[in-house]
Amino acid sequence: MLVPVPSAPLPPVPQTPSEPIVVARGLCKTFRVAEKQPGLGGTLRHFLRRRHRDVPAVTDVSFTIQPGEIVGFLGPNGAGKTTTLKMLTGLIHPTAGSATVAGHTPHRRQRGFLEAITLVMGQKQQLIWDLPPLDSLRVNAAVYGLDDTEARRRIDELAEMLELGEELTRPVRKLSLGQRMKAELMAALLHRPAVLFLDEPSLGLDVNAQARVRQFLVDYNRRTGATVLLTSHYMADITALCPRVLLIHGGRLFYDGRLAGLSERLAPWRQVRLELAQPLPAETFHSYGELESLDGAEVRLLIPRQRLTEVVARLLNELPVLDLEVSDPPIEELIGRLFRQGVVA
């Protein structure tokens, strides 16, 4: 059964321009990688004469995020998403550039900063494996200095939003992956952070659980006005949650804007599907656009956006067209292709 995915709600866009809550200015991170030949000889040689190679992971990434925005962070594996998130959460120092999150410099890791943010990592967990989530939540309440009544209130509130009940009193190891992720979210949000960094929060979850997590993030954002920066492999997460996306590729910011605009940027052409009265040879279509496929009387062409009207008119005039359909290549497919091939048009 598929749970209907809610249409993407618009974030509470502030009417007056306010101070951005996340600012990245020319962020760079270069990792120093030791060059070592394998084997004992290589180790010895490395010991005597160290050689390093600098590998840029993130280069000159700048953007700002307003309070309350939900922003999707896209890019193939190894593009620099996690490195950027780690710089914004203060887990690693930028090599160059600077970041400001909730008014703090992240890598100083001051208490005020740590209490204002949270990081959820889909493949890592902070809950205590052998104990019910409630115990981990109590630990976090103490760590963040919440008193018992306040902690109780927030736990109840989050449990209701996440539809968690008696699961909270069952050992974590006995929970399903989806229940565990929901409990992880509770642990990460108990201190009511203003900025949420989510790294693949729905990794490995089934479609149902993904949809629930998504719905929760939308509700949470609406209720608390929290800012969300999220990476995900599931395009559905991005299309449902993020009106704005950042696309990073090869460590550089490649796109920053509305999701719809991304497809124009990624695919400056549209797809035209024709059904003809009779099959025609492939050469016939060269003058109209790029031939994507030819299957008997069914033809798919790619046509640059700016020539679309003109070409469609010509097609209808010059060829025996029974049916014609113009479509945008689906964004999932474009990004999927981008991730697979690792190239940006």
């Binding site: 203060g90 890592k124 760590v143």
Partner: peptide, 11 residues
């Protein structure tokens, strides 16, 4: 396992 990240992010 990288869970040191969680520890470092606690106030």
């Amino acid at each position: 396992e990288g869970t040191l990240d969680f520890v470092l992010l606690k106030p």
